[in-house]
Amino acid sequence: MKLLELITYFRNGGSYEEFCKSHSIDIESEVVEIYMKKPLKIESELGFFEIEKTEGNYEYSSDGVAYSNLFDFYYFLDAIEESNNEDNVSLSNEDLTKLLYSYAINDA
């Protein structure tokens, strides 16, 4: 799954619980982190890992694949909620993808 697909899923009303279930993510995890496969490109695949596995590390490797942390799901879901408010609802999924990607690689 890519960042645009993730944004589209949640902006269209996708459920966090269903997402976790379909991606075998422990819903009881303290924090689920969103990582991007290296090298970082806006079209790179994402990985979703519980903080209990990543131990909060910026870099993480799973099944021989190197990932870098973008942000956690709490931040992401807050951004989705804000993007659906009256002031931002006209923002396209593509534009939101660019904004979140830029934040993750430049400001985080």
Rank of each mutant, 00 (worst) to 15 (best):
M1D: 01
M1I: 09
M1Y: 03
K2S: 04
K2G: 01
L4I: 15
E5W: 03
I7E: 04
I7S: 06
T8M: 07
T8P: 05
F10M: 12
F10Q: 10
R11I: 12
R11A: 08
R11P: 12
N12W: 00
N12E: 15
N12M: 08
N12I: 01
N12Q: 15
G14Y: 11
S15I: 03
Y16I: 06
Y16W: 13
E17L: 15
E17M: 12
E17N: 15
E18V: 08
F19M: 08
C20F: 06
S22P: 07
S22R: 14
H23P: 05
H23W: 07
H23M: 08
I25L: 11
D26E: 09
I27P: 05
E28S: 14
S29Q: 14
E30F: 10
E30G: 00
E30S: 12
E30Q: 09
V32F: 05
V32E: 14
E33W: 00
E33P: 08
I34A: 02
I34W: 04
I34P: 13
Y35G: 04
Y35I: 00
M36H: 00
M36V: 09
K37D: 02
P39E: 04
L40N: 04
L40H: 05
K41H: 13
E43Y: 06
S44F: 01
E45R: 01
E45D: 14
L46Y: 06
G47Y: 02
F48T: 00
E50P: 06
I51L: 03
I51G: 06
K53N: 14
T54V: 04
T54S: 08
E55T: 01
E55Y: 07
Y58C: 02
E59T: 02
E59V: 01
E59K: 06
E59S: 07
Y60W: 09
Y60A: 02
S61C: 06
S62H: 10
S62G: 01
S62Y: 11
D63E: 15
D63R: 04
D63I: 00
D63G: 11
G64W: 05
A66H: 05
Y67I: 03
S68G: 04
S68T: 02
L70A: 02
F71Q: 07
F71I: 10
F73H: 02
Y74W: 11
Y74S: 07
Y74A: 11
Y75D: 12
F76A: 12
F76R: 10
L77S: 11
L77C: 02
L77Y: 00
D78S: 14
A79N: 04
A79H: 02
I80Y: 07
E81S: 13
E81M: 10
E82Y: 11
S83C: 11
N84H: 06
N84P: 01
N84L: 15
N85G: 10
N85P: 08
E86M: 10
E86W: 05
D87Y: 13
D87S: 14
D87P: 00
N88E: 09
N88V: 05
V89D: 03
V89M: 07
S90R: 10
L91R: 08
S92A: 09
N93A: 09
N93V: 12
D95A: 14
T97L: 03
T97Q: 15
T97I: 05
L99H: 03
L99Q: 15
Y101A: 14
S102R: 13
Y103M: 06
I105P: 05
I105Q: 06
N106T: 08
N106C: 13
